[in-house]
Amino acid sequence: MSRIIAGAAGGTPLSAVPGSLTRPTTDRVKEALFSRLDAFDVIAGARVLDLYAGSGSLGVESGSRGAQAVELVESDAKASAVCQRNADLLNGVLGRKAVTVHRSKVEPFLDRATPGDTWDLVFLDPPYPLEETALSAVLSKLAAHLAPSAVVVVERSSRSPEPEWPEALTRFAEKKYGETRLWFAEPYVPDAIDRDDISAVEEAETAGP
């Protein structure tokens, strides 16, 4: 059973999407991912967007660890209902509405976003069959709504090619965990210094999961 790993609701079990509608991120991968995000110092106070949210596990984990506001976007009715149960669970623990659920397809959701809608941390865990061109289109729409120091995390099969990043995004790291590969990107800024201590984080992870 999936759970919230750390933070205000650490150890709390999460509801799972029934059947094989989604491909949940394993606790092993989630723990490694959030260790890296903690090293980047991008969670506390962040505005988080969890696209193709499934059960909402990644977004809810962020909320438990101190994100200011979390939005879960999921189009499937059953999965969206699970997102809502998990959001209600965390909101109850925190005593405030930190997590909001949107039942919507990803591209229309981004099309409706206003110029003032920006996020500091974004998760994309699309279905593996999603074509690379479709993922690239989503990343292009997303790029206009990122804070300057935002981090974008794309989860794909380890057999999938690297995402086709739009010009507005730059990949700065990637990590493979068995059948899962995580890609990390940030807004492209000409002549910007690379995110600090990436190599140190990579070295530290060699002893991890």
Rank of each mutant, 00 (worst) to 15 (best):
A46N: 04
L121I: 11
V101G: 08
E155T: 13
C83P: 08
G56F: 08
A207H: 02
A144R: 14
P148R: 00
Q68D: 13
R96H: 10
L21R: 15
S157N: 07
L72P: 05
L21M: 12
D191E: 15
P13F: 14
S35I: 05
H145P: 00
E31T: 03
I43V: 15
S35T: 11
E174R: 10
V201P: 00
S199T: 03
V101W: 09
P13G: 15
E155D: 04
P24M: 12
E71L: 04
P24C: 12
P108G: 13
K175D: 00
L37G: 03
W119G: 02
V73T: 12
G178N: 10
P24Y: 11
V153P: 00
P108S: 14
A185Q: 10
S149E: 01
A143K: 09
A173M: 07
L51E: 08
T114Y: 09
A79T: 11
Y52D: 06
D41L: 05
I193H: 06
E179G: 13
E167M: 03
T133G: 04
V99C: 14
L169C: 11
T170L: 07
P13M: 15
F184I: 03
P115K: 08
L49A: 13
V73I: 14
G56H: 07
R181M: 08
D111G: 07
K176S: 10
V17W: 13
R103G: 07
S80E: 03
S140C: 02
Y128C: 05
L182W: 01
S75N: 11
P209C: 02
G92N: 09
K30E: 01
H145V: 04
K105E: 09
V154Y: 08
Y128F: 15
S160C: 08
V48G: 07
A173V: 02
S160V: 04
K141N: 02
P108E: 13
F109L: 07
F109C: 14
L135G: 01
G92K: 08
P209M: 07
G54W: 13
T114P: 02
V101H: 08
V17T: 10
E203W: 02
S136T: 11
T25F: 09
R159I: 00
S15T: 03
A204H: 11
G56V: 06
R156Q: 12
E174M: 09
L146D: 00
L94E: 02
A168K: 14
L72S: 07
S15P: 00
R195I: 06
S57V: 09
P209H: 11
R65Q: 01
S75A: 15
A44V: 09
A173E: 02
D197Y: 08
P161Q: 13
P209F: 12
V106C: 04
R36Q: 00
D196R: 15
E167T: 05
V93D: 01
T170Q: 12
A87M: 05
V29T: 14
S57F: 09
P24E: 12
L72I: 04
V201I: 15
V42G: 01
R195M: 04
G63S: 04
G7K: 13
L130Y: 03
L37M: 06
L37F: 02
S80Q: 03
D50S: 07
G208Y: 12
P209V: 14
P148M: 01
G45I: 13
D120H: 14
S15Q: 05
S15D: 00
R96V: 06
E131D: 15
K30F: 09
M1L: 03
A192I: 05
